[in-house]
Design a protein around this nucleic acid. Structure first.
Lengths: 247, 247
DNA sequence: GTCTATAAATCGATAGAC
DNA sequence: GTCTATCGATTTATAGAC
């Protein structure tokens, strides 16, 4: 009888959260916050449960009641990170704006979030953490930005703003799931357009990562303006709009 | 007198290497080889001198005669990696070929090296190693691929193959060093072309990293063909040549 | 230059008292 | 759910014999 009550209190009901549940959620948040701070100091590979516990003044063993292992804590951080990035990108999107403006706004939001959370960004998009295998749970959050960019592409196609290319259909190149994300089926979105969309997303990622990981040092003097110019060139590659011709 | 002789033997003369120097060079190579193997197992952040020593059957303290610290070993691996990648790219370049062919050949070489040495690639271009600061020694090796791509751009411009754009001159956007690398001064290479060249290099890097770090899983079915198509689209963005029109 | 031995830390994970 | 205590491992780096 008591065991049943505990099971219910642990979150298997749909009602208002109990005091116990609120406390647990709060402490869980404190743990992930401390873990994010530690991430910034030592990186994902060296993230340790014990150091998190030390920072919170707890015994390390107490953390195992919240996260069964170090990898589970890492998974939580990864999912939270993808969701935060995805939300930042979605909030920056105004679906009523012209496609090229939407495109640049989303790119700026991605870069902005990355610069505000460089270590979380590195966790998501940097070198894989050795010995860590991401579970399937991370997939939905991980695809949010890509899906959003695909939506812009699809909307542009439906509005007739996407010039048709001649890439033809090539069913073996990009998976059906990715086709759905990249604007769905539409006459103006052929394989060539999809390739360019995926290339564009790779280029955003490459540009942000180059800057964050220090590979632009000594080459790019004004990163903000370079980024805007580069993203506009990308939109042009996609055929999302005419390029500004003046300086 | 003996101290002077040792200084000489340690490599400060210009003659034929002594037996002692050869042995030292050979063992140094064995150490870096073992370190590269360990890199593949545990990643750069967890690379340990002791594990390297264990693999070689040496005492860990003996390694300190070759590398004064773990960071010095890491620096050696990084420089070697950049040089190996740069050499692979340079070997793939045929300066007498048309620019677009050169471009795609170099891109393929970069991807090929990255797929053969994924952990070294991650060391060079993945998340920065926490607590490690790359010394200036790494810069010349690090810029080899970028300089090579810039050479292709410059040659194309001198051959009149690069259509002029209207980006104008913007002296504060890209540094003088980078301008020199990106084909040098030429009427056909204005700021817009340079921005696109840097964007193109970022896009290559982003594409290779996305594939290597697992972000294409579930989206790209045939990575080889996708890569070729994407790199051709990139060359088109640069104006390096007409795009193939057929399937 | 290589070895043994050691100092002074770190870690993940678990057992069991309360 | 939190604690102490512990197991069994890891690491960088140094001291000193040979």
């Amino acid at each position: 009888m008591l065991a049943v009550a505990y099971g219910v209190l642990a979150g298997h009901h749909g009602g208002v959260p109990t005091a116990r549940e609120r406390v647990r959620a709060e402490l869980t948040a404190e743990i992930t916050d401390a873990a994010r701070r530690q991430l910034a100091e030592v990186g994902a590979a060296a993230l340790s449960l014990r150091a998190v516990a030390r920072e919170l003044g707890m015994a390390s063993s107490a953390l195992y009641r919240y996260f069964p292992s170090r990898d589970d804590l890492l998974t939580r951080l990864i999912i939270d990170g993808y969701d935060a990035l995805g939300e930042a990108a979605e909030k920056a999107d105004d679906p009523s704006a012209p496609p090229q403006e939407r495109w640049v706004a989303i790119c700026r939001a991605v870069r902005g979030w990355a610069k505000e959370h460089p270590h979380e960004y590195a966790l998501l998009y940097g070198s894989p953490v050795p010995g860590y295998q991401a579970p399937q749970d991370t997939v939905p959050a991980a695809t949010r930005v890509g899906v959003l960019l695909g939506t812009v592409l699809g909307d542009a196609a439906r509005a007739g703003l996407l010039p048709e290319t001649s890439g033809g259909r090539d069913a073996t190149l990009i998976s059906d799931d990715a086709v759905a994300a990249l604007g769905g089926e539409h006459p103006a979105i052929d394989e060539e357009v999809r390739v360019r969309a995926l290339l564009a997303w790779s280029a955003i990622y490459g540009t942000v990562s180059f800057e964050l990981f220090g590979h632009f040092v000594g080459s790019v003097e004004d990163a903000d303006r370079y980024f805007d110019r580069a993203m506009t060139a990308l939109a042009h590659l996609l055929g999302l709009g005419r390029e500004r011709s003046g300086p």
